[in-house]
Design a protein around this nucleic acid. Structure first.
Length: 363
DNA sequence: GTATGCTTTCGGC
DNA sequence: TTACGGCCGAAAGCATAC
């Protein structure tokens, strides 16, 4: 059965939430920043509104540099409060959920949705529905967003991207091939740098090229499953279903160290809080992990990791403290530079529900 | 040979 | 002239299993 799929993305999310909360800053450059605490202005810009972007401010830019870009332009420099945006996000997702058959949240400010039944596969109805969702979010939260509608996830996502900011792009099945044709393959979900290189070696740079590429050459270079997916995506026929939002698959906590160091005792000390935060989060979510990772960001800002996977899920982070120390030791031994930041990740998460504790098991 | 699992790195926001 | 977070899932490389 043909499906109708949408993708929604809130415009410059964190900065827009700040604008909605304090409309008087709307006409000024707004910079939502993560201050690392190491020096007065060390840290980066997380999100900037369009007014700030016009001056050259970009996500991930050092705060000191961004401030220079908006000097004399009366900028609003705001410290990021993730919890606040999460609350707004939850309310938005709830609003969207009411209008669609199925919602799959893929980030704090974006989601896929299936509206096959809600629209009876009619794309005019789909546009009206998208307008309704946008209006609901605007009326309830004073936030604008962009929506793409198409026959597959890949098409819907490309649509919302091109609709930014604040637009709706409806790509009907009939217009899909024409829509996809000029878009660079790198924009396709599932195409990273290596895959791009491989495709370029076949003379494939646009999705149109991909759709008409020699399938056997594609398969020889990329393997069966990836080439099959890519070919389907390029013709707008990929059939990745929208699925109910899943629980996160990993938790991590990264901190900036007070100063660059390779001293293991120093790093462990400063990571105490991160360990506690992660342990608490695991407990309150009633989850266990199988993989533990030590993360180091070096002075040159490259990231290095060491990880360990257990045979059985672990629910108590404290129980593997010694392993955390071991992983950091391995990590430190494998690099020559100091660490600037350090973190811990737990992944391969599973719910403790329906799982017996060891004590119960032995009874 | 292809699928699967684990480890590490990358990229987007 | 330099400057520089935190978090997530995806991608990619490799080893082993089938």
């Amino acid at each position: 059965m043909a499906r109708v799929i949408g993708h929604i993305d809130v415009d410059y999310f964190y900065a827009q939430v700040e604008e909605a909360e304090n409309p008087s800053i709307r006409d000024r450059p707004v910079l939502v920043c993560v201050f690392s605490g190491r020096t007065e202005d060390s840290g980066v810009v997380s999100t900037a509104n369009y007014k700030a972007r016009e001056s050259g401010v970009k996500s991930g830019m050092p705060i000191v540099l961004a401030k220079r870009k908006v000097e004399g332009k009366d900028p609003a420099i705001i410290s990021m409060e993730r919890g606040k945006y999460e609350v707004v996000s939850e309310r938005i997702m709830q609003l969207v959920k009411e209008e669609v058959d199925l919602l799959e949240q893929t980030g704090i400010d974006e989601a896929f949705f299936d509206i096959t039944n809600a629209t009876k596969e009619d794309y005019t109805t789909a546009r009206t529905l998208a307008e309704g969702i946008k209006k609901s979010i605007l009326d309830n939260e004073r936030l604008s967003c962009s929506v793409g509608i198409g026959r597959s996830k890949a098409v819907a996502k490309l649509g919302s991207d091109l609709a930014k900011p604040g637009g709706i792009m409806v790509i009907t099945p009939e217009s899909t091939a024409e829509f996809l044709k000029p878009i660079p393959v790198t924009k396709l979900y599932g195409v990273g740098p290596k895959t791009t290189d491989a495709l370029v070696s076949l003379g494939v740079t646009t999705i149109g090229d991909l759709a008409s590429a020699d399938f056997f050459k594609l398969e020889g270079l990329l393997g069966r499953s990836l080439s099959a997916y890519l070919h389907a995506a390029a013709t707008g026929l990929d059939s990745e279903p929208v699925t109910e939002s899943q629980a996160p698959t990993q938790f991590m906590k990264i901190i900036t160290l007070k100063k660059d160091t390779k001293d293991l005792g120093e790093i462990q000390d400063q990571l105490e809080g991160a360990l506690t935060t992660l342990g608490t989060r695991l407990k309150s979510n009633n989850e266990s992990f199988r993989t533990l990772t030590a993360i180091g960001i070096l002075t040159d800002l490259t990231t290095r990791t060491k990880s360990k996977t257990y045979d059985v899920p672990i629910n108590d982070l404290n129980a593997v403290r010694a392993n955390v120390a071991d992983l950091f030791e391995e990590l430190a031994d494998s690099v020559s530079r100091d660490f600037r930041r350090a973190g811990i990740r737990v992944s391969d998460l599973s719910s403790n529900k329906d799982q017996k504790s060891l004590a119960e098991f032995l009874q």
